[in-house]
Simulated scan of single mutants.
Amino acid sequence: MKTIFSPIQLKHQGQFEFYNGAVVEGYENTSRATFITSRIEEVGLGPVLNPRPQSLDTARRIHSPAYLDFIASAWRLWRDAGRTGTALPYAWPARGRYKDVTPDSIDALLGQYSIDASTGFVEGTWEAVKASHDAAVTAADLIIKGEQACFALCRPPGHHAGTDFNGGYCFVNNAAVAAQRLLDAGASRVTILDIDYHHGNGTQEIFYARGDVQVVSLHADPRNDYPFFAGYADERGSGGGEGFNINIPLPHGTDWAQWEGALEFALGSVRQFGPDVVVISHGVDTFEGDPISRFRLSHDHFPLIGAQLAGLGTKTLFVLEGGYAVEDVGINVVGVLSGYEDAIRR
């Protein structure tokens, strides 16, 4: 299996976030990518290739142009205001209480285009975000050209980024952009199956009223976990997308038996939809040792996940999302990919 990754994606580094009442070093850091690439090389999964430079044309079909312009310029605006450190928001518009305006202040813009204080900008952020986007598009193009499966090592991740907002370490929704690229190339239906611990609220928001992209997610119950305000079972889509958004929230402490049952249900929904390609939002923060998650999957379970995904029999694009037990993230991410490859060969 080919992996797409650029060292430019490591330029988003040294950022801080606000978490549990304190400003802390970002959990989404460069070591995630280095542990994953090292594990890929260790097990001989396949070549790690640089992405091809890509335009933002497909991303503009997913995100608002104004939002993309902002994240591309946020660090410059922060620096021009005389700031240093990490650009984080501290003020957000209350729902329905303020005018629909685009303010000039960088502090206001940071709040307008975000949902939390975890997704900070530093000097290399935009370069890394753009390279991560390019990795997703390049991987989608490989699928279009005939690859059975490919892995886009997208760092920063993407599934919490919506049409015009960032959050949860995500700036551009890489999985959504990849899905759109596949559709533009002739796929009639694409499924995004999100196996990350957290609900992909951005992916849901982007495709909620569309019937050409099915979004299926199994995740921690948002009554008790991030992103809190999306991911409930009764969110089924709207208009032309009604019935094509499927959420499977699970309680804290979910073990393999519970999680596997949810996956089997999710896979049944995918088979019923009949997609041409499945995009996996590939998060491994379901691991029992993850520092910001509360499920109980072990190392041995991740190859089993890959084997079950292979059972769909469709072309499959894996797009990296979460997973923050840094010493273990490479083992678990590559475990899924190796399990998929082993099942395909059998």
Rank of each mutant, 00 (worst) to 15 (best):
K99D: 15
W78Q: 09
A175P: 01
F35S: 06
L182E: 03
E127D: 15
D134R: 00
I292L: 14
D196T: 06
D290S: 11
G44L: 11
S118W: 02
K130T: 03
H63S: 11
G313N: 01
V122C: 01
Q54H: 08
G21L: 08
P251S: 10
A230I: 00
V319Y: 06
G241H: 01
D328G: 05
H159D: 07
R61S: 11
A22V: 03
P47S: 15
G253A: 13
D342Y: 05
L297S: 03
E242P: 09
G289W: 00
I195N: 02
A131W: 02
Q9D: 13
H252I: 12
I143A: 07
F171M: 06
P65R: 07
H282L: 14
E17C: 04
R210C: 00
V122Y: 00
A139T: 02
F70V: 07
H160L: 10
R39A: 09
T102N: 15
F207Y: 13
E17F: 06
P291A: 02
H133I: 07
A22E: 12
V334E: 14
E17D: 07
L45M: 12
A257M: 11
H252W: 14
F5S: 10
E242L: 15
F302L: 10
I115L: 11
G237T: 05
G243L: 02
E42H: 14
P227T: 11
Y169M: 07
A325R: 03
A117F: 03
E147M: 06
R236E: 13
N29W: 10
L309N: 14
G85D: 06
A307W: 00
D290E: 09
D194P: 06
F121D: 04
A87N: 00
G306H: 04
